[in-house]
Nucleic acid binder design. Structure first.
Lengths: 226, 226
DNA sequence: GCGTTCCTTATTGTATACAAAATCGACCCG
DNA sequence: CGGGTCGATTTTGTATACAATAAGGAACGC
């Protein structure tokens, strides 16, 4: 993180994920350079990486914009995640050991706490959730699978929408994690895969519902304003 | 392809895929710059892209080397390919149209010709095979799937080894393609997926056998030399 | 002889200047 | 008005110089 290009990368990345840089927004190299306090050279390197992450896109004339996502795009991503994370869970179940299992239980406890508190601590929930899934992925011991999933998981639209999930969805997530842990304890790969696939697919519908709600609320506000 | 960084990218990429740059070999930016007749700036950009393609790796101190692959790595890649290309085939079967079907048949005819000629035209076989699979992938209509598979498919170790496949393997490949086409004609997604998964998994064993042969032959030569 | 330290050298990281290309707007013509 | 062309301005691409950092090797002590 000491190199300027790394700093620029994480800085711009945060701005995109937090939504401070809105989808579709233009990203001029000069402006970013000034913002990050570095020259254009490391900015260009950061932009390349962000493009590989699919967080930005480039027009045919090489100008950079924050990626905008259609519902179809999101669906596409969830389909792939469901398959790949399911596969990861199956492999992880076969390679699971006690230390990892213990860590998973810990993350899921933290996740439950975050959900149970009033009001629910969504950020904490998301952090624990991320850790939980990352740990499973690492346990699957496939470096390429890890790389492939990275780009699918780190999607701002999805994280932002999570703040509008129903509480019941969050509780259900925690329960499914418990069931995953049970599958891991028994080393039952196919079971773990089935739970995980369902878990991700359900997450898509939770996203889809929350998204629809948000759109409706937005349209409502626009009507009032008019 | 007009930009210097693009030229550098494809030039270096070709050298890696052809094997002129051996696995493990160091890639100095200065040296590459001179070789390509451009400055280091576009070279650095090309190296980033090649790293994303997993054709090169970088040490912790940021030096670049041509990727070297263990058999485990190759196995890992084939497992993922089998799953993802299987999925692509299923989707493609559901979205197939006559034009694509015709093109697939054409490629497979070309592939058969390449196999039937004496001696078999391996380069032609590989080219047609690539086209065949690429067309299926495109028909699956999932931009992200396409991106993910790209990095798994374009692996020099695998292409190079293909030259040592048994003739019977090539014939079998052509037959499996025919079966895939039959599944596509009937729009039978699960059938297409099953064939494709098997097709890729068989390809791994063909690779593995050819690789073992090559290793044995090499060891033999070393013994003679000593 | 082995390991360590320090210095030299090679290599990568960053900044800046300039070249090439694209966008935008004014202006002109139909 | 609408459309198109040209040019000014912005933006990206490349080259080069310099700074920072890591590798390699010599000299030294143990």
């Amino acid at each position: 993180m000491s190199r300027a290009s790394d700093k620029a990368y994480s800085q711009i990345r945060e701005l995109i994920i937090s939504g401070d840089l809105a989808p579709g927004e233009a990203l001029g190299e000069e402006a970013l350079a000034e913002m990050c306090g570095v020259s254009r050279t490391p900015i260009r390197e950061a932009l390349r990486r962000l493009e590989a992450d699919m967080l930005i896109r480039k027009t045919e004339s090489q100008r950079s914009y924050v990626s905008d996502w259609s519902l179809d795009d999101v669906h596409d991503v969830f389909e792939l995640r469901a398959m790949l994370e399911g596969y990861a869970a199956r492999r992880a179940a076969e390679l699971m050991d006690d230390a990892v299992l213990k860590a998973l239980k810990m993350h899921n406890s933290g996740l439950e706490e975050a959900v149970s508190s009033d009001p629910p601590d969504i950020e904490e929930f998301l952090a624990r959730n991320r850790e939980f899934h990352a740990l499973i992925l690492r346990t699957a011991a496939s470096p390429r699978l890890e790389i492939l999933l990275q780009t699918l998981i780190e999607q701002p639209v999805i994280w932002r929408t999570a703040h509008h999930y129903e509480l019941s969805e969050l509780v259900r997530s925690h329960q499914e994690h418990d069931e995953l842990i049970a599958a891991f304890e028994r080393g039952d790969g196919p079971w773990a895969e089935a739970i995980m696939t369902g878990h991700i697919r359900r997450a898509f519908h939770a996203y889809s519902d929350a998204h629809r709600e948000m759109m409706a609320a937005e349209a409502d506000q626009n009507k009032k304003r008019a």
